[in-house]
Design a protein around this nucleic acid. Structure first.
Lengths: 188, 188
DNA sequence: GTCTATAATTCGATAGAC
DNA sequence: GTCTATCGAATTATAGAC
């Protein structure tokens, strides 16, 4: 692992544990066993570090989301696979998933607005999927907003357990159990 | 509203919006239109302010939770009512609910450990309810850990929508739709 | 790339007059 | 209770020698 990779990994872990604002450059330097000044050999600023972490994982998720969303699968099958993507990504990159949930609000303008807009677009796409499912009869007549927020929220505990290593069951079983739960809450 | 009440209200709102670490005493002073020094007429320290906010809402929730949990209702009925309490409290005090979810990690020892222990006790009680439900046949044979975290997580979006005023439906309808969702995910 | 030193700023908190 | 003024600590970031 290069020094830069170590910096990226350790800073991710620290920001997940303490939050972006509470994580200092000194913390990051100590975690990679070097001086504060050295950190700036690899990053331009603390703010830039947050931005690169956030937009890297954000882009990866949205790319994979759009692959599914633009396919010709039925709405309910799309939702299944989107939950699958989220679980995949969370198991592969739990710290990044944590930042995506908790730390985006520390972005500064104009990046903050860009992030919020992209998230809103994503939420609208999910709402559209649920609407289509209701229309074709595969999804119960739920309130679209509530169902969307509940669906998205219900998987948002996972990164914490994966990051802390406190999860007893494996990825496949998590996917099975989570899909049972949310599909049962949605389908007719 | 007294000045102290205004301080408590404005600081809650700011901490919800920006996070505890990013909220400065100067922010709080500006929001109540007074000087920085004045803030200290009403609070001892910024840390103490967080503690009083957090333990006040935490105690209120756990008291009401234990009322239900110590009753002789069936497990599934207890779970219904616990979701009801959470929704009640979130509609009544959305900013406090936000702190309970996002800002507890900025507590310092020994209050931090106390908070974490109380939350763990609470989670164990919920897990026990689900286990009982599985035993008496009212709940599907789910993985207890996954079901507990998913259940608790699925209602955790609500405070954000209530706090921002972006919720179109009323409290009763939220409760109906949320219960439909999570009970369908749990029950046989 | 690594270190020492330090600039520049921000923040929590207090002193003391009114 | 309210203000001005300021202290002391922490923090991001840079300069410059090696």
């Amino acid at each position: 692992m290069t020094k830069k990779e170590k910096l990226l990994h350790q800073s991710l872990k620290l920001i997940h544990e303490k939050g972006f604002k509470a994580t200092t450059i000194r913390d990051i330097a100590a975690s990679m066993d070097c001086d504060v000044a050295n950190v700036y050999n690899f990053i331009d600023s603390k703010q830039g570090l947050l931005e690169s972490h956030l937009f890297s994982i954000n882009e990866e998720f949205h790319l994979r989301f759009d692959e599914i969303n633009n396919s010709s699968f039925e709405p309910i099958e799309k939702i299944k696979r989107i939950v699958g993507i989220y679980i995949d990504l969370t198991f592969a990159k739990p710290y990044q998933a944590s930042l995506l949930v908790n730390e985006w609000r520390h972005l500064k303008e104009p990046k903050l607005s860009r992030f919020i807009k992209e998230r809103e677009k994503f939420e609208i796409k999910v709402k559209k999927l649920i609407k289509q499912g209701i229309k074709d009869g595969s999804i119960r007549k739920v309130d679209v907003d509530i169902a969307t927020y509940t669906l998205l929220s219900s998987v948002r505990w996972l990164f914490n357990k994966v990051a802390s290593g406190n999860l007893k069951v494996n990825r496949i079983e998590v996917e099975k159990q989570l899909l049972d739960f949310v599909l049962c809450g949605l389908t007719v």
